[in-house]
Design a protein around this nucleic acid. Sequence first.
DNA 1: GTGAAAGCGCTAACAC
DNA 2: GTGTTAGCGCTTTCAC
Lengths: 327, 327
Amino acid sequence: MSASIKDVAREAGVSVATVSRVLGNGPVSDALRLRVNKAIEVTGYRPNLSARRLRSQHSQTIGLIVSDIRNTFFTSVSRAVEDAAYQAGLRVILCNTDENPDREAMYLRLMQEERVTGVIFAPTRETALRRDLDTLGFPVVLIDRAGPQSTVDAVVLDNAEAAAQLVDHLVQQGYRRIGGLFGNTSTTGRERHEGFVAAMQRHGLKGEARFIAPTAQAATEATEAWLADPDKPDALVASNGQLLLGALRAVRESGLALPDDLALCGFDNESWTEVAFPALTVIEQPVLEIGRSAMALLMDRLADASRTPRKVVYPGLLRERGSTAKK
Amino acid sequence: MSASIKDVAREAGVSVATVSRVLGNGPVSDALRLRVNKAIEVTGYRPNLSARRLRSQHSQTIGLIVSDIRNTFFTSVSRAVEDAAYQAGLRVILCNTDENPDREAMYLRLMQEERVTGVIFAPTRETALRRDLDTLGFPVVLIDRAGPQSTVDAVVLDNAEAAAQLVDHLVQQGYRRIGGLFGNTSTTGRERHEGFVAAMQRHGLKGEARFIAPTAQAATEATEAWLADPDKPDALVASNGQLLLGALRAVRESGLALPDDLALCGFDNESWTEVAFPALTVIEQPVLEIGRSAMALLMDRLADASRTPRKVVYPGLLRERGSTAKK
DNA sequence: GTGAAAGCGCTAACAC
DNA sequence: GTGTTAGCGCTTTCAC
């Protein structure tokens, strides 16, 4: 059992109120303050945050709910969120949902029980479309994924435009038979698909898109199957880092040469995309910025609950590299 | 303000004790249980975890303190820890220390204030050597890094042996002028260095080792400088994934060919090492196993505080790839 | 400037 | 089976 404020009070020969005032930098005479501080030292007292939270009625805690922290996009975002949070005196509870709506619901419920100050959340499409995200009892800021008319704050990439950038780039480099791999659980996958399709149409081309589970493994399998096709594409777009990695693995195993046999590009400027050979053309997302921005939206919302929901949209940055060299 | 147990009691026309019993699956008549459950529904009641923790005197929370979650080793470990923790009904608080002893101290203090059940911790060398890790008021399990005679439980790689595996492999492949890059903040870097030196001696070789900050950036700079040396090595060992990435980046920029001009290998089987070209030879760590094992040690320790500290040591697995092809 | 006391939401004796 | 009540550690009136 560790020491409580009571033990400190006894040790110092003062009331608990005085100890509390010392802790909170309230008005206390220097003499008593000295005695209390000594007593704190002697007893090894540490404040009990559960008690403080119960008393003060706020948890100083935010939730960060993502599909999988091993996805580098979320890793980086989480780092930015945590830095900002700890700086603001907030704790962060991290949850991995594995794109499972049931787990999302479970964690949202947990957040209610924790009486969190707010939640930063990358939902599945299913949950993003829920109408009640604004009635959970705490503010929610969506990241990475958000429905078209979200009732809550969100910070996302301009997905359609970014996908179009990739298509435009590929076309400009001389590719025509362009295929796309898209994640089937997120609004992000959908939006990137839309941008892909629109851009292809604009060029008078008819690309094929395939929706798959958002894992490297699924991408490897899908790509292998696709490359076996006599009618196979001459360029492939992968809608996130996991899919890009999986596709690359399939290309390596098939023995095809990049970019001569197949051009490859995608999303997320993970560090390895730069050292792969040839280096991979990608859309870079401002990951740290996205995390910071999400925290900022959350803070603003806490300051004024009634403000109109905002959606911060970042442009993707095309990093042209060898994997899409001119045909 | 959300509903409390009192509101539920009033709504159901019962005492708070009865509500509490319903929640805790205590003995309650079916009739009342029904009424209470209906009242819970009506009021939208959610238990307040702060209150529960205060009352029950345990937080059901563990701390996970690592240097940087973006280091994929820690990313994977954290995922394993979190899965195991949530399964055991425990929350996880994640902290990034950036290899800064002050931040480590701050977070350890925070853990005390949270009255955590236990902490899983990858300390800097400085903190790992602290004697008081077993008097924090909660059990600590060290991961990745641990002093030679740790007073607390730990799960680590057999670092010296793993480094020796890399050296043996390089020698066998025909390399002789082998250099090593090691992180200067962790016991891990030291141990890998020792294994490196010992193995080189065993082969009658005299390799050069350089200690640097454990970041990709530092590794890039160190490698660039090293490769400018007229007396440069013909093979390089990097003591973790960050350093390996940094070294690879430098090699790419220098225009040298892997492995003809320089062989390169290191630690951490990150997914990109496999798709790089040539693929990189690495020591694979059983990351998920390490995370699970740390949780298991923690649970055992909670069950019996007096047991002798255990150190679980995993062997590294050599993945031979093209970056160290025969000379 | 200081202390006594109430109460945050909850559970666990303890009565009946 | 059910209700009453004390108290976990803390902050904040409210008196003095």
